[in-house]
Every structure is written in C-alpha cells, then in structure tokens.
C-alpha cells in the first residue's frame, strides 16, 4: 500500500508537470516551432483566455464552454494581431521579438488600467480524491487528460487534415504553396490564430487554479519557451518527449531538492540541450541537424 501510494504520488507529480508544460507550450509550439516567430506576447494570450474564461464562467456559462469561449476569443485576438503586426515581420524574426514584447506591455498594462489590478477567481471544480491517505485534486487529473487530448488533436489536425497539410506546406515552402493556389496570407493568419487560441485554452484550463492578475501570463512563459526549445522545430516529434523529459527533471528535482532546484534545473537543461542538440529533440530524433 505504501509502495502504491508513493508510486501514485510520483506519477501524479510527473503528470501534473507534464500537463502544465504541454498545455502551456502548445500555442507557442505552433507559433514559434512552425512559424519561427518568437512570440513574447504568448503569456498575454494566456491571460486573455483566462480572463475571458473567468468572466464567462461567472456570467453563468458552464466551465467547459467558458474555457472554449476563452480559447476562441484569444484566437480571434491573435488573428487580428497577426494581420496588423506580425504579418509584416515574417522576414525579420528578431524584430518580431520586439513587436510582440511591445504588444505584451500594452496588454498587461491596458488590462491593469481597464479591469483593475486583480480579478476574482472562479474556484477549482470537482473536489478531490483520496489515494492511500492523501488527497489529490481531481481537476488536475482532468488537466492531464486534456494535455494528452491536446497532443492527439493537434497531431490529427496537422497530419491528417487538409488544413494541416496546407498549413505545413505554406510554412515550409510559401512560394510553392502560393503557386499551387494556396491563399498563403490566410493560412499564416489561421495558423497564428490557432497558436493564440491554444494559448487562450491554456489560460482557460488553468484559470480556475490560479490567481487572476494582469501579469499572470509571465508565470507560463519561461516554461513554455524551455519546452519548445528543447523539443525543437517539429512539435509532435519534439514537444511531447521534451515535456516528458522536462517534467521528469523538474518533478524529480523539486521532490528531492526543493522548488529552487526545480526552477534552476529547467533552465540549465535548456542551455545544455541547445549546446548538445542544436536542433532540439526533434532534430536529433529525426537524425538531422539544422
């Protein structure tokens, strides 16, 4: 029983961290991994999703629908941002860093001015379960399931749907796709919008468990970048194993050496991975380097 208890505890911790990494990095993986745009406003799309979700939920919408609304709104905002700003910067990836940072500043401070410095939370649903004398939040288990569902859904979308094939073609060889009659501008917009919507989804999913403040996106951003970078360009080959490995490292270090080493370990890992595997895990797994 004690063994089962500690095994479950470890699995739960691992799954919890894994889910956090996967969910928070999915949007970034699409935008950075596929489009090559470093989106420093990733955290603000997450915040947008969380705020919309919380408002919708308090307005009486059931939580799953509220989360969906949050994701859709964030996606719509993302498409507008792409049209107005990002579209002009595809040839200048370093400039897109500055532009998205500018957007992030405006969003954070704008929300602070308009909506105030905090927003009331909505509370975590579903309660807890008891395993071997310790209690665990059920909602966290739902989040783990969501993470797996998200990976599966994205895989289907990008590899087994017409949209996915065209999106990948557009991003890999834009001129060729354009010559073949693809409306590349629209595809870029949709892909960026998808990335923003995934960020919004992350915000919606974590909104019930977190403090709602305009700067809440910042707590996601380091972890998501680390995961995407360790994963490398191909999000499906890379991001899932990257999240798994990082979750193992982080959960392990946190369990045995405390939160400080969990934080630092994550950052050191990314430095080492970039040094040893410049193409990230996916580059290595596919036997190629950039």
């Amino acid at each position: 029983m004690a063994l089962f208890q500690s095994v479950f505890a470890m699995l739960y911790q691992f799954g919890d961290t894994f889910a956090f990494l996967v969910i928070s990095c999915a949007g970034l993986a699409v935008i950075f991994g596929m489009m090559g745009v470093i989106n420093l406003a990733h955290g603000e799309f997450i915040m947008c999703g969380a705020y919309v979700t919380a408002s919708a939920a308090r307005g009486g919408l059931p939580l799953p629908l509220a989360i969906l609304t949050g994701a859709l709104v964030a996606g719509a905002v993302g498409m507008v941002v792409e049209r107005l700003v990002i579209r002009h910067l595809y040839q200048r990836p370093l400039d897109s860093i500055i532009a998205t940072w500018g957007i992030s500043l405006i969003a954070t401070q704008g929300v602070l001015i308009v909506l105030g410095s905090t927003m009331q939370g909505i509370g975590t649903p579903l309660g807890s379960i008891d395993v071997g004398g310790r209690s665990y939040s059920l909602y966290r288990l739902v989040l783990m399931a969501c993470a797996l569902g998200l990976l599966g859904g994205l895989y289907l979308l990008f590899y087994h749907s017409r949209f996915g094939v065209i999106a990948r073609a557009t991003i890999q060889k834009p001129q060729m796709a354009y010559a073949l009659g693809v409306n590349t501008g629209r595809m870029y917009g949709l892909t960026f919008g998808l990335g923003a919507a995934l960020a919004g989804l992350a915000g919606g999913l974590y909104a019930p468990t977190m403090t709602m403040v305009p700067t809440m996106g910042a707590t996601f951003i380091v972890e998501s970048f680390v995961t995407v970078v360790v994963g490398g360009a191909d999000i499906f080959v890379g991001a899932a194993p990257a999240a798994a490995i990082l979750a193992l490292i982080k959960a392990g270090l946190t369990a045995w050496y405390g939160q400080l080493f969990g934080q630092i370990g994550l950052l050191v890992t990314v430095i080492l991975v970039i040094r040893i595997l410049p193409g990230g895990l996916s580059g290595w797994l596919k036997g190629t380097t950039r």
């Binding site: 090559g36 470093i38 990836p93 370093l94 860093i97 380091v222 970048f225 680390v226 970078v229 400080l260 934080q263 630092i264 950052l267 050191v268 990314v270 430095i271 970039i274 040094r275 040893i276 410049p278 950039r290």
Partner: peptide
C-alpha cells in the same frame, strides 16, 4: 560555449536569457 557549440540565431537569445534568469533565481 555558444559559438563553438554552433548555436545560432534565436537560440542564442534563449541561451543568454536562460543564463540571466538562472543568476536571478
């Protein structure tokens, strides 16, 4: 460490950012 490890482009940004965040933490 970076240039002799053939790290390039935006990854330089991420490594350097990680270094400064490690020091801060």
């Amino acid at each position: 460490f970076m240039f002799y490890g053939r790290i390039q482009g935006v990854f330089i940004g991420i490594v350097t950012l990680s270094v400064t965040l490690v020091l801060e933490t």
